[in-house]
Write a protein that binds this DNA or RNA. Structure first.
Length: 273
DNA sequence: CCAGTATCCTGCAGGC
DNA sequence: TGCCTGCAGGATACTG
């Protein structure tokens, strides 16, 4: 589900509503997510700690605790974080609940279990097997200087490169398709067969589409919602994602679709070369 | 090292 | 009305 704009929206919501709260209890059953989740052992660590800061790295969310340590969260395809009152019914597949000192709960639900919740002890962040491999942040002010040479050195289709978290961290299937349409680059084009000029345009398009999506609260297609239960309105701005068969918003030709790196992608056969 | 494919899991839409 | 197939905002283990 969630790419950078959705994770950033969740981050801001948690920061606004939960900063300073203390964890008073942990509930949930052990379950195999991307990494094993064991609420009982988490409870021994987390109870009594305070939610101090909320950070994002790529599609990962990091919750810094006082006096020390960090909770690492990834939402995978179907993960959701929800701020709720105890009286509100829990979502299906609610795997973890943090009870807070003001009576509210922070709940993690993940239908498909491609996400993760993990505990990072002090110092563990730099060594983490997922975090340590992440590439540049797309909202980095220098992205237009950094990204072109990275992509130009590879033979894979640019669409696959944009979604490779080791190169650029936070872009997924929706925003890769949208950025390529904006930059007028065909998603099948190889990185090393795309000029540095055009790759610079692509980097600017990536930053632009992500910035606008964050401003709209992300993209709600199916189950994504903010922790307060709101939706992301960038779905209204999507030009090509999921629109195969419809007219290109720029030139009117019929958008086509294909599979690149195992993911369906739509593009305009006229605008995008 | 690089590129491409299979795999993890549940739910839902569409075809027969 | 079922039943079956394919597909979905992702990451990674594996193959060639």
């Amino acid at each position: 589900m969630p790419e950078l704009p959705e994770v950033e929206t969740v981050r801001r919501s948690l920061e606004l509503h939960l900063a300073g709260r203390t964890i008073t209890g942990v509930e949930g059953e052990a379950v195999k997510l991307r990494r094993p989740l064991d609420p009982k052992s988490l409870a021994r660590i987390l109870v009594g700690r305070r939610l101090e800061a909320f950070r994002r790295r790529g599609k990962f969310l990091l919750v810094d605790l006082e006096p020390e340590g960090t909770i690492l969260v990834h939402l995978g395809m179907s993960g959701r974080l929800q701020i709720a009152q105890p009286s509100e019914p829990r979502l299906p597949h609610n795997h973890l609940v943090l009870l807070l000192d003001d009576g509210r709960e922070l709940r993690y639900a993940d239908t498909r279990r491609f996400g993760l919740v993990d505990w990072l002890a002090p110092g563990a962040e730099a060594m983490d097997s997922s975090l340590s491999k992440l590439g540049v942040e797309p909202l980095d002010p220098h992205i237009a200087e950094i990204l072109p040479s990275l992509l130009h050195a590879r033979r894979a289709p640019v669409k696959a490169l944009l979604m490779d978290q080791r190169l650029i961290a936070g872009v997924g299937n929706i925003y890769a398709a949208e950025a390529l349409w904006r930059a007028r680059i065909r998603p099948t084009r190889a990185g090393n067969r795309t000029s540095l000029n055009r790759l610079t345009n692509l980097a600017v398009a990536v930053r632009g589409v992500l910035t606008e999506a964050v401003a709209q609260g992300g993209t709600t297609l199916r189950d994504y919602a903010t922790p307060e239960g709101g939706y992301g309105y960038f779905a209204l701005e999507l030009k090509v994602y999921g629109r195969q068969g419809e007219p290109c918003p720029s030139c009117g030709s019929t958008l086509r679709a294909g599979v690149i790196a195992g993911r369906t992608t739509a593009w305009c056969p006229i605008c995008q070369r």
